[in-house]
């Protein structure tokens, strides 16, 4: 009945943004490090105020290196590469190393060292082992009404199969990198940009699975002109991570999935596997050392089950897609 529908329309639960401010919290140093076959990078930052604006604090003058506890002569020093991101990385840049070895070796243990404001932080030793393999990457087409956006939408579910070594207390993480190139109006900026997008939430191994992981969903990729006008590259990387990092990342994943839980958001209080040597400085950090294996596929426009309809070119692709670059990544073919 019409009258009842009218009454019912106002029966709504409400979600309101709050101006909640915990106030007075000393923000810790955040250390996010990875030493893998493809990268040696450490990002330093600080915690920031809830309900505040974008607020990255630069960590100047940090000293960062990775040591091999099984080979005291080996030391990989990382230099600050990007000013605005406070990123110390060797990926796609100069590698500073006393020994010259830049990839982790199976059977070795690596420790991250960071010195900031005379406080030294170290990670727990991370053992490197063979991480298994990515066996297959594929996709399925799906379409329907997206209730979040209120529109009809179609896209691809990116799936993959993987094999991990057996053994107790072994943990793995996968990362998905979806890369596409976007044509733009050359009058307003670069003619082409390359955009890389990640999985929505960390992909982690689970005790519910055996050594064979089949049909893991990496990401749902909406079909848009920009993404598939040229081609869409999917790369899956597989890492072995320590239990501390797995627990930290699992808590992060759990929070991303349940942050808006009706019952109660899960508490995130994990500190990771990096500690302050003098015990005084506040730090949250994770460091992973792993041989990574990867696999990639290209999804071409012709692979899609429907035609793509052209759209106006973005004026400046670097602005429309924050984080994009105007040069092709080395893997782009």
């Amino acid at each position: 009945m019409a009258w009842s529908r009218y009454i019912l329309l106002i029966l709504l639960a409400c979600v309101d943004k709050t101006d909640f401010d915990s106030g007075g919290t000393a923000f810790p140093l955040i250390i996010d490090g990875l030493f893998s076959t493809k990268a040696a990078e450490v990002r330093l930052s600080r915690g920031y105020r809830v309900n505040g604006g974008l607020n990255y604090t630069r960590i100047p003058g940090a000293i960062v290196w990775i040591a091999d506890t099984d080979d005291p002569s080996w030391k990989l020093i990382l230099k600050e590469q990007k000013l605005s991101f406070y990123e110390y990385q060797a990926f796609n840049g100069t590698i500073y190393s006393y020994s010259g070895a830049v990839t982790p070796k199976a059977g070795h243990h690596y420790v991250l060292h960071v010195i900031v404001d005379s406080n030294e932080f170290v990670s727990l030793p991370q053992e490197v082992r063979e991480p298994g393999s990515i066996d297959n990457i594929y996709f399925t087409y799906t379409s329907g009404f997206n209730r979040d956006k209120g529109v009809e939408e179609d896209g691809l579910n990116i799936l993959f199969d993987a094999t991990v070594p057996s053994g107790e207390d072994r943990h793995f993480q996968w990362r998905m990198f979806g890369t596409f190139s976007v044509l733009a109006d050359p009058a307003a900026g670069p003619e082409r940009c390359w955009v890389t997008e990640r999985e929505d939430a960390p992909l982690l191994s689970s005790s519910a699975f055996a050594t064979r992981y089949a049909g893991l969903t990496a990401r749902y990729v909406p079909i848009t002109f920009d993404r598939f006008n040229d081609r869409y590259r999917v790369e899956i990387r597989q890492y072995e991570i320590s239990r501390e990092v797995w627990e930290f990342t699992e808590a992060l994943r759990f929070q991303l999935k349940n942050g808006s839980s009706l019952f109660q958001p899960p508490f995130f209080v994990r500190k990771g596997n990096v500690i302050s040597l003098n015990g005084q400085a506040n730090v949250i950090g994770i460091f992973t050392a792993s041989i990574d294996v990867s696999r990639a596929i290209y999804i071409k426009r012709s692979d899609l089950p429907r035609e793509l309809y052209g759209q106006p070119l973005p004026a400046n692709c670097l602005r429309v897609y924050p984080g994009s670059v105007a040069y092709p990544p080395p893997f782009w073919m």
């Binding site: 996010d32 809830v50 949250i284």
Partner: peptide, 17 residues
């Protein structure tokens, strides 16, 4: 129990409680 600050790791925003 509320988030008292946020931080970013691996590209994800995290709330610390």
């Amino acid at each position: 129990t509320v988030p008292v600050f946020g931080f970013t790791v691996d590209g994800y925003g995290v709330a610390y409680f």
